[in-house]
Structure formats: structure tokens, C-alpha cells
């Protein structure tokens, strides 16, 4: 059955995924095991995306399927479980920018990978990032943006983290389709990614290392 869920997810068969998850919950299967299967499915999707077997539109859809399945599992997960898994991740599109396609995919894939994602939304001011990092104790921050004005906002956000003495405690990833090494250096981030799959890969390494 585990095989089926991850295959169904990797094949983007939404109805089958949801149906299998419901049946497994009804049969009293361990929700953690169901979640693990879904995560494997998401991993396969990431590999297929890198191999250019799946494309952006598939990635968006797979994130949505995963989210739907996760909602079904949530009520039966143990309340006292260690929900953070690989850790907390504060994510948002920076001030002055409202593009959220990339950010939402990252949120879905990170959740799939085992992070607890704190998605702040779009057009987020530096002080809000700072407040949420402090409050959650997150070790990872993701700043998303597509416009060039976002680069300055990313830089300001990182500076605000420095001023709040939090910079040393967090790793900052920036993401957007125009991000490259030059932009990464300009804003002072630890890593940059041009697509969600690449970004999630780097963050997973951070969490493990």
C-alpha cells in the first residue's frame, strides 16, 4: 500500500492519493507511516522535475495534492509528536513583492521533506521576519522574490536579522527565477536557488549537517 501511495502521488493521480489516504486512516494505519509514503512521493516528484520528466505546472499540482492529503492526516497525527522533524523554516516573499508561485511550491515541498513551514505570506517587512524568527527559534529563513526591487528588500531583511543578533543563528536562503551568485552576494544570503527543488535540496543538507 505504501508503494501505491507514493506511486499515485508521483503519477499526480489526486483522486487515487486522497482515496488511499482515507482508506488507510480508516483501517487504522499509523499516520506517520502514511505521511512518510507521501514524503517519498514528493521526493520522487523532485527527482522527476530535475530529470525534466515533470515541469513547473506538475510541481504546482503535486504540492496541492500533497497539501490536500496532509490535511486529511493532520487530525489523526499524535498531538505530542515531534512535528518539527527537520526543523522550523520561516518563509515569505519580501517587502514590495507579491509573487508567490515559487514560494508556495517551496512551502509544499519543504513540508513534504519534513520541515515545519511558517509561511508568512507575501510583501513581508524585515521586522516581521525578525519577529517570527525570534518567536519560533527557527534556524532557517527563506526569502522569496521575483522583482529586482526584491533584492534590496532581501538585503534589508538580512541586515535586520544582523541588527537583532539573529544572523549568526540562522541560515538564509533566497529564491527567485532570476537569482544567481551575484544576487546572493549582493544581498548577503547563505545560498540562492532558482527553483524550488534546488532550494529544498540545499536546505535539507543544512538540516542534516
Amino acid at each position: 500500500m505504501g508503494e501505491e501511495i507514493k506511486t499515485a502521488l508521483a503519477n499526480l493521480d489526486e483522486n487515487l492519493v486522497l482515496d488511499l489516504v482515507r482508506r488507510k486512516i480508516q483501517a487504522g494505519e499509523d499516520p506517520e507511516a502514511i505521511l512518510a509514503d507521501l514524503k517519498t512521493g514528493i521526493e520522487i516528484i523532485g527527482q522527476k522535475f530535475e530529470a525534466q520528466e515533470l515541469y513547473l505546472i506538475d510541481l504546482i499540482y503535486s504540492g496541492d495534492i500533497f497539501r490536500g492529503a496532509f490535511e486529511l492526516i493532520k487530525p489523526v497525527l499524535r498531538k505530542d509528536r515531534d512535528s518539527t522533524g527537520l526543523g522550523k523554516f520561516v518563509l515569505g516573499t519580501v517587502k514590495g513583492d507579491v509573487h508567490d508561485i515559487g514560494k508556495n511550491i517551496v512551502a509544499d515541498l519543504l513540508t513534504g521533506a519534513g520541515f515545519e513551514v511558517i509561511d508568512l505570506g507575501v510583501d513581508i517587512a524585515p521586522e516581521i521576519f525578525v519577529a517570527r524568527v525570534r518567536e519560533t527559534g527557527s534556524r532557517f529563513v527563506g526569502l522569496s522574490g521575483l522583482l529586482t526591487v526584491a533584492y534590496d528588500a532581501m538585503k534589508e531583511t538580512i541586515r535586520a536579522l544582523e541588527k537583532a543578533d539573529l544572523r549568526e543563528k540562522v541560515k538564509v536562503m533566497i529564491g527567485g527565477s532570476m537569482v544567481n551568485d551575484e544576487v546572493k552576494a549582493y544581498v548577503g544570503a547563505d545560498a540562492g536557488c532558482r527553483d524550488a527543488v534546488q532550494g529544498v535540496k540545499i536546505v535539507k543538507q543544512w538540516a542534516k549537517g
Partner: peptide, 11 residues
């Protein structure tokens, strides 16, 4: 909306 549209494209 892109999310719903991505579903429509598959379904």
C-alpha cells in the same frame, strides 16, 4: 488562479 488551473490541466 494558477493552483486551480494546474489541477484543471491535469484533470
Amino acid at each position: 488562479s494558477l493552483k486551480e488551473f494546474s489541477r484543471d490541466i491535469h484533470q
